[in-house]
Design a protein around this nucleic acid. Structure first.
Lengths: 212, 212
DNA sequence: TAGATTGTTAATCGATTAACAATC
DNA sequence: TAGATTGTTAATCGATTAACAATC
């Protein structure tokens, strides 16, 4: 696709939030909104909203504002949420299992097709209708089913080596929950690092500014 | 405290990542590093590292670089990681339970002292050595134990009302995993929203630029 | 002392906000 | 037509990078 290659990552990252708020408005039965009203709800400026949206096209109408349903739909298209990127999850421990069960992959452009783990006591159990497979099956599975994305819920030590292997096997996108920073080491591989502890430490700092 | 009130949030948010990389270097037995080397490892510029650190003080030495252990320690102090902010977690379902079990609260400036849930089948079970209490106990618990932070692992619909109540009860910081955006609606309350689905959708966009 | 590397100021770059003409 | 609100250009603001004098 690469249709909007020039749009900055700061803008992209705001898109899911717009999508979320527009979805909420739809639920409430709101069908029309101005950048001014939306800005108020989302705690942004109207200017920023109009700038952001106009990176992708003119979705509004002068004198009227934006159609909530249409805009929601457009942002979904921009993000590619109707894709079904074949996805595997590796590491079905505590966190991995929760992610597999709780995240609405299907509404976010992904389709979870395989779960893998190393531990014998986990292998064979069923998560979200998928039987957990041993890591030894990973390679043949990938050659057969050709997943394009991988969710990493594994310990830090294992992350880099596994990522290298997965890139070889054709994985083009990582959702990384391991404590390891998969920096941009591969060309043409998409990456989202989720560092929950970083977020908690940031909260600690903010809190320390308020308390005492 | 409010010692560094003028430092921008962009800088603050990079601090946990510095902390993490410095910790890794310590493990490897590296005791000295220049901004140039660190920049290389972290995929930043040396300038940015020096600028970031100098927001808080001159931790380096000309001609030498930075002492890894000392810098790690300093950043821990800046973030306030040796605090023990009394913290409660609300919503001990799948996600809440995992968070309670997996997150190293004690190394991030927090101390988990209570877990609450609404559901009868969850109440009474033990998570991380804490007995899950019914929501009805929340108020008296807060008055007695005076927690300052709350982790919210509850459904979107419940978030706003509960947050209001918790602010009344003296909570000064929220780590919010609910799908609801607790925007900055309270004065003097610290907030970190974690929106996993937003991250996944961003990955979807990035992936769509690469694949096809 | 010479070499290395910081701390810090200045220059550049990018992102946000303001303003307004276009237009529904 | 008059009022409202967008799309878009220009102005401002903040963050990142470059440069270099200070100094270990």
């Amino acid at each position: 696709m690469a249709r909007y290659g020039d749009v900055s990552i700061s803008v992209i990252k705001r898109m899911p939030r717009y999508y979320r708020f527009l979805g909420n408005l739809m639920e409430k039965g709101v069908h029309r909104i101005s950048s001014r009203e939306l800005a108020h709800i989302m705690n942004l400026t109207a200017s920023q909203i109009r700038q952001d949206l106009n990176c992708f096209g003119g979705f509004g109408q002068q004198g009227y504002g934006y159609n909530v349903d249409a805009l929601h739909h457009e942002i979904g298209k921009i993000l590619g949420l109707r894709s079904e990127y074949r996805t595997i999850l590796i590491g079905a421990g505590n966190l991995g299992k929760t992610i597999a069960q709780q995240i609405p992959f299907e509404h976010s452009g992904f389709s979870l097709i395989g779960v893998f783990d190393l531990k014998e006591d986990i292998v064979g159990s069923t998560i979200r209708g998928l039987e957990v497979q041993p890591i030894s099956e990973l390679e043949s599975f990938c050659r057969k089913k050709r997943p394009v994305a991988a969710v990493l819920c594994i310990p830090r030590e294992a992350a880099q080596e596994l990522a290298d292997k997965l890139v070889e096997l054709g994985i083009k996108g990582f959702w990384n929950f391991s404590h390891y920073d998969l920096s941009v080491e591969y060309a043409n591989v998409a990456l989202e690092n989720v560092h929950l502890v970083d977020s908690l430490m940031t909260l600690c700092y903010k809190l320390s500014e308020i308390v005492e």
